[in-house]
Structure formats: structure tokens, C-alpha cells
């Protein structure tokens, strides 16, 4: 009952490692940088370049996740009257100007994170509306995974309302946004090779062949730098090899 090492469960953002391609991309450096940006920034990169993977590894360094991967139906309603999660860092009575954000949370314990996943413009707009109504406070950071799923007015609204309420906002997007860019992710042959070295078991037949940059380079170009698609392509290669080996072992 051997598993394909490139099955989805092994290559989803929660399982795969974030491999920094430069010193600036180290998780601790990114966390500090984000704090300097008052928890308002965007992770920018194309499909399958590691944006969600970075989120999975960066978020635990930033604060406490109150709601993870919320969609409209899964986001719990929290009335506005509810006291802030961390009373020690309660917001001042008036809020709204940029200078007030200078009291932004400084420690992991102080920041409550609401992690939203955007799926379809209509549902995303409702999700954002509900979040803004009940969850946007100082000491809170909203993560919007899939910012481009929002309609243009909702995108602007998310930025303006979180700024007015003093909440942080971390986006993943395929293009640059109005927020400062925290990091730009990009799939590369070197990154693919490093990840595959971690994913492929040492006793896998033709492991060296699968890790060969000459083989990975055209595949990555074929998928426009999308590492997820590259893994899916190699999944098929491994399945075919497995079937061939199986047929050779016990002919039907």
C-alpha cells in the first residue's frame, strides 16, 4: 500500500516546506518585516509559486489564529459588542488614523488572526462584509487568501476598512496591490529540485532522473512556473512507473 509521494496530501501548503530562496525570504525576517509594515502587506506571486505555503509557515510566527480558512458559511458570527480578545491591548476609544496604528501588537500573543479563503466573487464579498462587521478590530489581522477573487470595490473596501479600524491585512495576490509587497514568490527549477529532494523517498527508482534539472526545466516552462502543476505531472510519471513495475512483477 505505497503512497505516491507527490499525492495532494503530501504537497498541499500545510505539508510542504517553505524554502527561502534568499536571506530576505527567511521566515523570521519576513515576520519582522511584516511587523514593521504594521501587519499590512501583500504576498505576490503566480499560481503554484508558494504563496499559501508561505502563509502556512509564517502565520504561526505572527499571532494566534482565531479562525482558519474561513469561508462564508464557516465564519462564526461574533457580535461587535464582544470585548477584544486581548484586553491588555484594548484599542483606544477613537480609531481611524494611521498614527494610531503605531500601538499595533508587538508580540505573537497579542495578534488575533482571521484567515479568510476567497471562493467566487459573490460569496467572497459576503464573507468580507461579515468579517468587517464582526471581526475587524485593532489587535486583529485579516488574511485574505486569493485577493483577486474579490470584486474591485470589495478590494478597496477591505483595505480602507481595515485601515480605519486599525486591523492588519495580509493578502495573497497574483499581482501587486495597493499594499506594500512583503515578498514576491516565484517557482524555479532550483526550488522544484529542493522540494522534490524532500518529497521523494531515497529508495525511489529513478530518483536521480526525476531530480535532474534538465528534466525539470522544460516541465516547469510547460506549466509556466507553476510548481503544483509540475508535481501533478510528476505524479503521473510515478504512477505510470509504478504500474509498469507492477506489470513486470506479476503479469496479468
Amino acid at each position: 500500500m505505497k503512497s505516491n509521494p507527490l499525492a495532494t496530501r503530501f504537497v498541499t501548503p500545510g505539508h510542504i516546506q517553505w524554502l527561502a530562496q534568499s536571506d530576505e525570504q527567511r521566515l523570521d525576517r519576513l515576520a519582522t518585516h511584516l511587523q514593521h509594515l504594521r501587519y499590512r502587506a501583500a504576498i505576490v506571486g503566480p499560481h503554484g509559486s508558494g504563496k499559501s505555503t508561505l502563509l502556512e509557515h509564517l502565520v504561526p510566527l505572527l499571532g494566534t489564529v482565531l479562525v482558519k480558512h474561513a469561508t462564508y458559511s464557516s465564519l462564526p458570527l461574533q457580535p461587535l459588542e464582544t470585548p477584544p480578545l486581548f484586553p491588555s491591548a484594548a484599542p483606544p476609544e477613537s480609531c481611524g488614523s494611521e498614527s494610531e496604528v503605531s500601538t499595533a501588537p508587538q508580540t505573537v500573543d497579542q495578534l488575533g488572526i482571521i484567515w479568510l479563503q476567497m471562493r467566487g466573487q459573490w460569496a467572497s464579498a459576503r464573507l468580507l462584509h461579515r468579517t468587517m462587521q464582526h471581526w475587524a478590530h485593532r489587535n486583529r489581522m485579516l488574511i485574505i487568501d486569493g485577493y483577486e477573487q474579490l470584486a474591485y470595490p470589495a478590494r478597496g473596501l477591505a483595505i480602507v476598512v481595515t485601515r480605519l479600524t486599525g486591523a492588519g491585512l495580509l493578502l495573497t495576490s497574483h499581482r501587486r496591490t495597493w499594499l506594500p509587497t512583503l515578498v514576491e514568490t516565484q517557482g524555479s527549477v532550483a526550488l522544484a529540485q529542493q522540494l522534490l529532494e524532500q518529497l521523494l523517498p531515497l529508495d525511489l527508482p529513478d530518483r536521480a532522473g526525476l531530480l535532474d534539472p534538465k528534466r525539470l526545466s522544460p516541465l516547469l516552462s510547460k506549466h509556466n512556473g507553476n510548481l503544483r502543476e509540475l508535481f501533478m505531472d510528476l505524479y503521473d510519471t510515478l504512477e505510470t512507473a509504478c504500474e509498469t513495475n507492477s506489470l513486470q512483477r506479476k503479469p496479468r
Partner: peptide, 14 residues
């Protein structure tokens, strides 16, 4: 917690 369960594995979400 003890559970008996099935799960899919492959190219799709689990």
C-alpha cells in the same frame, strides 16, 4: 481518540 476511517489519496483534495 480512536477512529476507524477511510481517506482518499491522489491528485484531488482529500
Amino acid at each position: 481518540e480512536a477512529s476507524v476511517l477511510w481517506a482518499t489519496e491522489g491528485k484531488g483534495s482529500e
